[in-house]
Every structure is written in C-alpha cells, then in structure tokens.
C-alpha cells in the first residue's frame, strides 16, 4: 500500500521540521527576531486548535477569543491570588474553557452555519463586556503578572529563548492532539458532519455530541495558548485577549492556510504573522485598526482566489504544472445535485 510509505514520509518530514524548529534559535539570536518566531508559533498553535472545530468539524467559530481570554485570565488569577504555578494554571484554564464550551455549545449548536458563527461572536462580545465590568478581574485596567519573580516555576523569563521552547512544546502538543483526532473515528465523524450532517445521522452519528467534542477540545487548547500569552506579555486586559480581532485572527490563520488539514494553520500563521509584523514596521502602528484592515484584505484574497486556502492553491498549481498527471475524466455528480 502507498499509504504506509506516505505516512513514514510524513513522519520524517515532521521530524525534520521539529529538529529545525528546535535549533532555529541558535541561528536567530536577536531578541526581536526570536520574538517574531514566538509570535508565529503562537499563531500556529491557535490556528491548529481552531482547526479542530472550524476545519475538521466545519463549525466556524468567530468567537474563539472567549476561550483564549478564559485561559489567560484563569491562569493569571490563580497565580496572583493563590500563587499557583502557571503549569497547573494553564490546565485549569483549559478545563474552565472546556466547561464553558460545553455550556455555550449546547444552545449554539442548535443553530446552523452562519447563525452558529454569529452566536459565537455574540458570546465573545458579551464575555468581553462582562470582564471589562468585573471589579474582581480589575475590569478595563487589566492584570499584571509579578515583575519580581522569574524562572520555570512561575514561567516568567527575562530572555525570549525559554518562551520559544515553551510555545514550541505547546504547539507540538496541540498538533499531536489534532493528529490523534484526525486518525481516530472522531476525525472521520467530524468530516462526515461537515460534509453531510443528515447522512452522518443516518449512520448513527450524534451531531450534538461530536460537535461538542470538537468545540471542547479546541477550547481547551486555545485556552492554553491564552495562558501562554499572559506569561509572555506579563499583562492582560479584556482588549488584548477577549477582543473580536483575536477571534478573527484565530479563524483567519486556519482559513488562510487551508482548513481541515494539519499543516494548513501552521502555514497560515507564517504568512499572516509575517505580514502583520512587516506592516507594523511599515506603518509604525500597533493599533487594532491596521490589524483589521490586514485581516479584511486577507479574507477577501482568500475568498476570491482560493477558498481552500494557500494549501489548496498549492495543490491546484501542482495539478496544472506541466508533467503533472492529468485528472481522470469522469462524470462528476457534483453538478447534478439540486
């Protein structure tokens, strides 16, 4: 079978990529450049996490900032009030986000397609307003992590390098979870639900159960990314972790690279973060206004040129290159469906 060699080639490719990522900071020593690499890994991690529900299961969430923010606030509050190490705080944040995902998924999954997406936007907006008005969470002022501590226990570092390896580890974890889902019956069910929900039900697949699994796992991993953000920035406020722009960025990274495939969001992160950082140096602005313009431009480009993202575009190119094997001539049933 060809699938066997395919799998081992993929494994070899992944191992090579991982080895490269592990030694990359030896070559890239400039802190601002290391920071750039960290931003890419953070983007990739959130994109891969989003892809589980938005890509595989086809349930487009435009409110993932709610999980990101829950992760950031949970681990930070646990550190500030109980002195709990963020290693456990991030897990707690993941659990809180997962519970929140179950609670919001139950009603929201009764809505289909665009209505589901709109409901997720609403949930995230409401959450941002609630946190902004919460005295216990310092409202709009935000939370500062302790400046007088550092080290692996509190996960606060003076240099960029440790952050790089922590987020690389989190990305690897997120990819592994995704990969395990993709290969299990759950991954098949997700794709079935995305393609033909009614047919999936006829084969015994409970839509609610599997959509909830997708959202919950995705929320858990997204929240861990949020905890990492808090550790790296050492400051969070509702605008920086609960904002609508974060939600759009998370979804866009996956959509830009190509949804439903493991490598898509990683590619999307490299592209989007690079453009973001370059435009920042170009326009000298870090305001969310520029971000929004970039995101909007990206969405239009994807929608017009390649709805299946950059991966889809590459696939098309490969098929049209000279020497590529011609597509089989067959009657496709696609057009016949009413």
């Amino acid at each position: 079978m060809t699938t066997g060699t395919n799998v081992s080639r993929k494994m070899a490719g992944t191992a090579a990529l991982l080895a490269l990522a592990a030694v990359l900071p030896l070559a890239v020593t400039e802190p601002s450049q290391q920071n750039f690499l960290i931003l890419i890994l953070m983007g990739a991690q959130m994109g891969v996490a989003w892809n589980i529900v938005g890509g595989y299961a086809g349930q487009v969430s435009l409110g993932h900032a709610v999980f990101y923010g829950i992760g950031a606030y949970t681990s930070t509050m646990l550190l500030l009030t109980l002195g709990l190490t963020p290693w456990i705080g991030a897990l707690a944040g993941g659990l809180v986000a997962a519970a929140f995902a179950l609670a919001m998924g139950w009603p929201c999954f009764r809505l289909k397609g665009h209505y589901f997406a709109m409901a997720t936007i609403a949930v995230a907006e409401i959450m941002q307003i609630l946190v902004t008005n919460s005295d216990a969470l310092e409202g709009a002022v935000g939370l500062y992590l302790p400046m007088d501590q550092s080290g692996w226990g509190v996960l606060i570092f003076l240099s960029k390098l440790p952050y790089y390896y922590v987020i690389l580890g989190l990305l690897v974890l997120t990819v592994l979870v995704s990969w395990a889902i993709e290969r299990s019956h759950i991954g098949y069910y997700f794709r079935a639900i995305k393609d033909e929900p009614e047919a999936a039900r006829a084969l015994g697949v409970s839509l609610t159960r599997y959509k909830l699994i997708a959202l919950t796992v995705s929320a858990f991993l997204t929240a861990m990314g949020g905890s990492f953000y808090a550790q790296k920035e050492m400051f969070i406020d509702p605008g920086s972790v609960f904002a609508g722009t974060i939600s759009i960025k998370i979804a866009l990274i996956a959509i830009l690279g190509g949804v439903g495939r493991l490598t898509g969001p990683v590619l999307g992160a490299v592209i989007l973060i690079t453009i973001e950082e370059y435009s920042r140096t170009l326009f000298g602005s870090t305001g969310s206004g520029t971000d929004m313009i970039i995101y909007a431009a990206m969405i239009i480009l994807v929608a017009v040129f390649s709805p299946s993202g950059v991966l889809g575009l590459l696939g098309d190119l490969r098929r049209h290159l000279p020497g590529a094997k011609p597509a089989e001539v067959e009657t496709s049933a696609k057009e016949i469906r009413p």
Partner: peptide, 18 residues
Amino acid sequence: FQIVRVFQSMTALENVMV
C-alpha cells in the same frame, strides 16, 4: 437518500468506514 448525500471530501472507502 433519494438525492445522494455521499461525504464529498472522503474517498469511497472512507464513506463506508463511517
């Protein structure tokens, strides 16, 4: 289904696996 509803993104084998 009278109007076919196969899982378009999957191979024939994967459809049956579901």
